[in-house]
Design a protein around this nucleic acid. Sequence first.
DNA 1: CCCAAGTATTACCGTACAGTAATGTATTAC
DNA 2: GTAATACATTACTGTACGGTAATACTTGGG
Lengths: 128, 128
Amino acid sequence: MQVISSNSDVLFRILADPTRRLILDLLAERGPLSVGQLASEFPDLVASGISKHLMSLRAGGVVSATRRGRQQIYQLEPDVLAAGLTPWIAKYEQYWSAALERLRDLAQEGRVKDEQTSRKNVRRKRAK
Amino acid sequence: MQVISSNSDVLFRILADPTRRLILDLLAERGPLSVGQLASEFPDLVASGISKHLMSLRAGGVVSATRRGRQQIYQLEPDVLAAGLTPWIAKYEQYWSAALERLRDLAQEGRVKDEQTSRKNVRRKRAK
DNA sequence: CCCAAGTATTACCGTACAGTAATGTATTAC
DNA sequence: GTAATACATTACTGTACGGTAATACTTGGG
């Protein structure tokens, strides 16, 4: 029985569920969405289930909601997500860094995304 | 009922438990450790509980074990961890990057709090 | 005002899971 | 050999959690 429950604990529990991660992905990709729009992405799930997940996300602070008419528009709160997870991510950064750079390189040779030079040596793979 | 269970799903579930995250932290900080050494870090937990957590971690591939005498030495497998999580981390990288840089700067100008946080002296780059 | 749309909330169910205790297995010590 | 150490495994338990269905709440339209 865990008594204490740090901020980070809540976030990791939230992220443990694939549905909630997908909701976050959708909000990150498409911007603010209503409950109905989100729910339509989960055909094998009932609407109230999505609502419950949204409540969890909201309780964790990673999303916020505003009314628009009779619908509730949910929005990602990236700062809360970052604030809660960066300490952990930073702890293992030496392990991500290599893999992340490779991903960046892949994305770069495909098309020119935002000019985002890595802090390390930027091996400039032909910018198209 | 989730039928499919991607690699990433397993990792997020593993990380959902604070005890398991702490085990990973210990292995990352101190290197390979025996079950007893790990268990001694959890006074309010029975040894077999730790063993079960280690089995989960092992099943997920994030740690590996080798015998030495009668003790089992557990070791972090950073590549598996990185391979499973970097895709997700990369998706939200724009949100981490600023926070990570700030952490790096803090570690750099203050004293070094952790060997991992400052492993690379890098010049700060402006984050948008 | 009444009704429908869009969400939230509640009640309920089944299962997954963390925890303990007890037992089992391998290895070293005596 | 026997005993002890170090883990693993099994069995069991309580609870947290994801899911559904049903109900309640809020808002806009007629």
